[in-house]
Every structure is written in structure tokens, then in C-alpha cells.
């Protein structure tokens, strides 16, 4: 049995990408960016602050970290709650101690359930972006455009009520988008999205409804990937981020300002035995004259003022 002859047709074999969301851009071809204060590396720490219903939904796909055992999965429900009640406050304290500004991507259920957390985040100067409704709010091709829009709008409006203004940024659960997501984010007023992992620097994505900035938050540079998936220690993860920082500082001398993202999960990093290594990493970065801890919105504003 042979393959369908169409398997050897390549309708998108052309110069550029095989889609229209963005255009190619090679690192050496770009105009160098200068960050505020001539810092070499913008370190963008992002925390995923999430609420997992004990009644998981598998459509369109089960969120990473969601329930595992038959109902009722006390083990995972409470371990995730541990991250929110305890681990997240360890992170906030560590950020305050090192004078670090971060971005917190929150499920809107957090704002509904725990408004005091939102107040604490704001009081300590971190930026809040939207991160769907709760951990049943996953997006992938297969959910209807109306359902996806409703999910985006509910997350935005719930946070807008808590914050007094709409969040500018969005990150999908597991960074998973449908074909419609970038356009829907534009239509619903978002300024930037944090789902694509194809670059180190922000770039402009174009949809039928207009443009949106894509800020790459490399999934490889995350406690989930390094610790939960690859089973490395926090000490190793911290060393890897430190190595990346050193490399990017050197590279910035020739290519302009660099970005080093690190995505943090409260129920992973915020455990007692991991915090010391994490705090040492923050101290190391904060102690460098080359480091600019940038919130996602600050990064976009600086980048946009120098681009196109």
C-alpha cells in the first residue's frame, strides 16, 4: 500500500515560514537593542500561579500538573494548593529580599478565590498577566472559537475587576494555542503573549485583526522542564541559568541586549529544600551589574521603543 500522492506535495514550500503569523529573522541580521541602564541581559522571571480544580477536565488536553489518581485526588489537589499557600509566599519573600521584579501569570480563579494574594503581588510591585481561568481552561485546536473567546474574556475581565485595569499580557496553559488564539488575543485587547518559544527576544506577530508582541518564555528554561521533567536538582537548574546568564552577557557585547527568561512554579521551586539554591541564584543575578530584572510589560515597552 503506497502513500497518498499528495503526501509528496508541498504547498507551503516557499521562502519564509509555512504560516503567516511571523516572518523569519536571524539573530545576526537584527539591529541591536539597548536595555535601560545599558544592562546586557533582561532577566524575565515568570511565575505560573495556578488553581487546579479537583474535578479535572481532559478536553482539549489535561493541563501539566493536573490531577492524576482516581477521584478524589487529595494528593495532587493539596500539593498544588501547597504551592499557592506556602511556596508562592516563599517566592515573594525571596523576590523582595533580592529586590527582584517579576511577572506573575495568574489563573483568574486565583483572583476570585484569594483576592489577598493579588493585593500582595501588587503591593510588592510585580506585574500580573492573564493565564486562563483555572487549570481546566486549556486551549488547543478543537475547542470552538466561541468557547476560546469566552475563556479569554472571562480571564481578562475577572483580572480587570481585581486590578482596576485589564492585564496587558497573556500566557496560555502549557503555552498551548489554537490557530485562533493570537487573533483572539488581539481582538480582546491584549498587547503581548508569552506562548511562543522560538526566539530569545520579543518580536511582532501579525494576525488578521492586527499585531501582537510575542515574548518568548523558553519552556526549556523553567523549573518544570529542568526539575519536574528532566529530574535535575535545583542546584543544577540554578547552575544552568547561571551558565546561560554568563553566555548572554558575553553575547550582548556584540549583538545587543539579550533576554534570559526563567519560568517558576510555586509547587516545584517553593519547596523548603529547593529554596536556598533558588535564593542563591537570585543573589547571583542581582549582584551582577549586567542584570536588569524586567517585568514582561517593561520588556515590551523598551523593545517596542527601539523597534520598527
Amino acid at each position: 500500500m503506497s502513500l497518498d500522492p499528495a503526501y509528496l506535495d508541498y504547498p507551503k514550500r516557499r521562502a519564509g515560514m509555512d504560516h503567516d503569523l511571523y516572518t523569519p529573522s536571524s539573530m545576526p541580521s537584527r539591529k541591536p537593542i539597548a536595555w535601560p541602564g545599558a544592562k546586557a541581559v533582561a532577566v524575565t522571571l515568570l511565575v505560573n500561579l495556578e488553581w487546579f480544580p479537583i474535578t479535572p477536565e481532559d478536553a482539549p488536553f489535561p493541563a501539566p500538573g493536573h490531577m492524576v489518581t482516581p477521584y478524589p485526588d487529595y494528593r495532587h489537589y493539596t500539593a498544588r494548593e501547597y504551592g499557592t499557600r506556602v511556596g508562592f509566599y516563599r517566592l515573594l519573600d525571596a523576590f523582595a529580599k533580592a529586590s527582584v521584579r517579576t511577572t506573575i501569570a495568574v489563573n483568574s480563579a486565583i483572583a476570585e478565590r484569594y483576592p489577598s494574594i493579588i493585593a500582595d503581588i501588587r503591593a510588592e510591585g510585580h506585574e500580573i498577566i492573564a493565564h486562563s481561568t483555572d487549570m481546566n481552561g486549556t486551549i488547543a485546536t478543537g475547542i470552538s472559537e466561541a468557547d476560546e473567546r469566552a475563556l479569554i474574556v472571562q480571564a481578562r475581565d475577572t483580572l480587570a475587576e481585581a486590578l482596576g485595569e485589564a492585564p496587558r499580557g497573556w500566557q496560555s496553559i502549557a503555552r498551548s494555542q489554537s490557530w485562533n488564539t493570537p487573533r483572539l488575543l488581539v481582538e480582546e485587547g491584549f498587547d503581548y503573549m508569552c506562548d511562543w518559544v522560538n526566539d530569545d527576544l520579543p518580536y511582532l506577530a501579525t494576525t488578521e485583526a492586527g499585531t501582537i508582541v510575542s515574548i518568548p518564555f523558553n519552556h526549556e528554561l523553567s523549573d518544570r522542564q529542568m526539575i519536574a521533567v528532566q529530574q535535575h536538582s535545583m542546584e543544577s537548574a540554578a547552575q544552568q541559568i547561571g551558565d546561560a546568564f554568563d553566555w548572554l552577557v558575553a553575547e550582548a557585547g556584540r549583538f545587543g541586549g539579550r533576554v534570559l527568561p526563567f519560568t517558576i512554579t510555586p509547587y516545584i521551586t517553593g519547596l523548603p529544600y529547593r529554596m536556598a539554591a533558588f535564593e542563591q541564584l537570585l543573589d547571583r543575578l542581582a549582584g551582577s551589574k549586567h542584570c536588569w530584572f524586567a517585568g514582561a510589560g517593561e520588556l515590551v515597552d523598551s523593545w517596542r521603543s527601539q523597534s520598527g
Binding site: L3, D4, A6, Y7, K12, M17, D18, H19, P24, S25, S26, M27, P60, F61, A140, T141, G142, A174, R175, S176, Q177, S178, W179, D195, W196, V197, N198, D199, P216, N218, H219, E220
Partner: peptide, 30 residues
């Protein structure tokens, strides 16, 4: 990003566009 299906092997784990693995590989060329 949206290859045709081969009956014996799937390209991406999630429905297309599976933007994390796709974007990860696009990182190479950028």
C-alpha cells in the same frame, strides 16, 4: 506546522498547531 498525516507516524503530540515543539525547532533557524 501543519504536515499531512502519515499513517504510521504522527508528527506532533497535540492538534496542529502544536506551537511549543514547533517553535522550539524554529528557534534553530532564528
Amino acid at each position: 506546522i501543519d504536515p499531512p498525516a502519515n499513517p504510521q507516524r504522527k508528527s506532533w503530540p497535540k492538534p496542529h498547531p502544536d506551537i511549543v515543539p514547533y517553535g522550539h525547532r524554529d528557534y534553530a533557524n532564528r
